[in-house]
Design a protein around this nucleic acid. Structure first.
Length: 355
DNA sequence: TAACACGTATTC
DNA sequence: GAATACGTGTTA
């Protein structure tokens, strides 16, 4: 809607939109400038607010009464978005782009890393802002609550996030105290485990390719559990938005394999023929194996059930995951899935693990 | 076509 | 064994 955009541009002086709703649904600076469904966006804000309400943020946790499943999830959810520097203080945990454009920056922001672009200095840090390292895991002193932020989601409004340069260990929040990050609640999110506990090895198994490193503590790398590690291409570090090449450090020092269908029960790392398929399954072969969530699409990265969709409401009988958490890949027909690499990305060869 | 129901695989 | 979630047939 051109009128909306022109309205926004004339009422901002620094790129921020001061007319809340417009800001909530537009994503200036995102390149594509998509317009999100407002309801969906608000729902995401609400879920995030609920998440913080149940974990470590002093908020009026009214939502938790309405969404018991969310509360349950929140209890088992570690502070993936540390200290409010990323999430509540001005940037939604889902980032500005991520539910539309699966690019690296979005994922990086989500998993605790600031987008590595033109950010030499934080934007106008609030007064008396402590040094980043000192307060990294602490709630932002100026936080006013998640859903109240009309500027949430604006990529450039991430005041208070510390700067991470695009090289060296700073890339991985070396300032983190990893124990702080993970042991506050003693365990990690089930979804995170499901992503990481695959002791499978689609990349060669047994860490042969440097992917599984059973005795290599992530902390030594300054890698907080939950941080996705993106293997940069061997050519000039070009960000290649291939979600299948994300990796994630976890408590178990394992990485999320880029095999989407890790096999837990047998030693075969990648999809194999499954003898029995579900009720209606034809049992015609490997393609009928139950698929796994991709783990990197926007719904997969969502940690909290909405609690209100039909799937949540019919948890017992429906046996379905929350609608808002349903993997985009799984929504597609099983036969229509394109495997791992887009044509422009030479799988594997273009990536390497760098530490 | 979306929502629902159910069988079943998977994980804890 | 319970909880979760995928796949698919049925129904509105």
């Amino acid at each position: 809607d051109h009128s909306v955009h022109s309205h926004s541009s004339t009422t901002t002086t620094n790129g921020h939109n001061h007319h809340g709703q417009c800001c909530a649904v537009t994503m200036d600076g995102c390149g594509l400038t998509p317009v999100l469904d407002y309801t969906a966006e608000m729902e995401r804000y609400r879920s995030f607010a609920n998440f913080y309400a149940k974990t470590n943020v002093n908020m009026n946790a009214v939502n938790s009464m309405n969404f018991p499943q969310s509360a349950k999830l929140a209890r088992i959810t570690p502070p993936m978005f540390p200290g409010g520097r990323l999430g509540v203080a001005g940037v939604t945990p889902w980032g500005c782009h991520d539910n539309v454009n699966m690019n690296i920056n979005a994922a990086a922001m989500l998993w605790g890393r600031k987008p590595p672009v033109h950010q030499a200095t934080p934007l106008a840090p609030p007064t008396t802002h402590p040094p980043p390292l000192a307060t990294h895991m602490q709630p932002h002193p100026h936080r006013t609550g998640g859903e109240g932020k009309q500027h949430g989601g604006h990529a450039s409004s991430s005041q208070g996030q510390e700067t991470h340069h695009h090289h060296g260990n700073n890339n991985f929040l070396s300032g983190y105290t990893t124990t702080d990050h993970m042991t506050k609640q003693g365990h990690t999110h089930q979804d995170m485990l499901s992503l990481s506990d695959r002791n499978s090895s689609c990349n060669g198994g047994g860490g042969a390719n440097g992917v599984n490193m059973p005795n290599f503590p992530a902390g030594m790398l300054g890698l907080p559990p939950g941080v996705i590690v993106m293997a940069m291409g061997s050519h000039n570090g070009v960000n290649i938005p291939d979600s299948s090449h994300f990796q994630m450090a976890t408590n178990h020092n394992q990485m999320l394999s880029d095999c989407h269908h890790a096999n837990q029960t047998n030693s075969s790392p990648c999809p194999s023929t499954s003898p029995g398929m579900t009720s209606g399954g034809q049992g015609s072969g490997a393609s009928k194996r139950k698929r796994k969530r991709c783990g990197v699409c926007a719904p997969c990265r969502r940690l909290i059930n909405c609690g209100v969709c039909s799937a949540c409401r019919n948890r017992k009988t429906g046996h379905q995951i929350c609608k808002f958490r349903k993997c985009d890949e799984l929504k597609k027909k099983a036969g229509s899935i394109q495997l791992e690499s887009p044509p422009s990305v030479p799988s594997g060869e273009a990536f390497r693990w760098f530490f």
